[in-house]
Measured scan of single mutants.
Amino acid sequence: NQASVVANQLIPISTALTLVMMRSEVVTPVGIPAEDIPRLVSMTVNRAVPLGTTLMPDMVKGYA
């Protein structure tokens, strides 16, 4: 089972991601792979991401 990136807090729309905002967790459905966390830092989300939500590729500008 692959770990995915999960929001560690509410991430408001257009917020630049930082390490403290994300954690890795094995979830269903599978989202962005946890090993991509370093790549996600400073990318922005294009929607509000509630606490505990799995980050999907279409939620992060420039990721997909």
Rank of each mutant, 00 (worst) to 15 (best):
N1I: 14
Q2H: 11
Q2F: 14
A3C: 07
A3S: 09
S4G: 04
V5I: 10
V6A: 02
V6K: 02
V6E: 01
A7E: 00
A7M: 04
N8L: 05
N8C: 06
Q9C: 07
Q9D: 07
L10G: 11
I11S: 02
I11M: 03
I11C: 03
P12L: 08
P12V: 04
P12I: 04
I13W: 09
I13T: 13
I13L: 12
I13E: 14
I13D: 14
S14A: 12
T15Q: 09
L17Q: 00
L17S: 00
T18K: 09
T18S: 09
L19T: 09
V20H: 13
V20K: 15
M21P: 01
M21Y: 05
M21K: 02
M22N: 01
M22C: 03
R23K: 14
R23F: 04
S24T: 11
S24G: 08
E25S: 10
V26W: 08
V26S: 08
T28R: 12
T28A: 13
P29R: 05
V30F: 13
V30Q: 12
V30A: 15
V30M: 15
V30C: 07
V30H: 14
V30G: 14
G31C: 03
G31W: 03
G31H: 02
G31P: 01
A34V: 09
E35W: 12
D36V: 08
I37C: 05
I37A: 07
P38H: 13
P38E: 10
R39W: 09
R39P: 01
L40N: 00
V41R: 05
S42I: 04
M43T: 04
M43K: 12
M43W: 07
M43R: 12
T44R: 13
V45E: 01
N46H: 09
N46V: 11
N46P: 02
R47A: 09
R47E: 10
R47F: 08
R47N: 08
A48L: 13
A48Y: 12
A48R: 13
A48N: 15
A48C: 08
V49K: 00
V49N: 02
P50N: 09
P50A: 12
P50M: 07
L51K: 15
G52Y: 05
G52W: 04
G52L: 04
G52D: 09
G52M: 04
T54V: 11
L55H: 02
L55M: 11
M56E: 07
M56Y: 08
M56K: 12
P57L: 04
P57W: 11
P57C: 06
P57Q: 06
D58T: 10
D58E: 15
D58M: 13
M59Q: 05
M59G: 02
M59R: 01
M59C: 05
M59T: 07
M59K: 02
M59L: 05
V60F: 05
V60Q: 00
K61Q: 15
G62Q: 11
Y63C: 04
Y63I: 04
Y63E: 03
Y63Q: 03
A64G: 11
A64M: 15
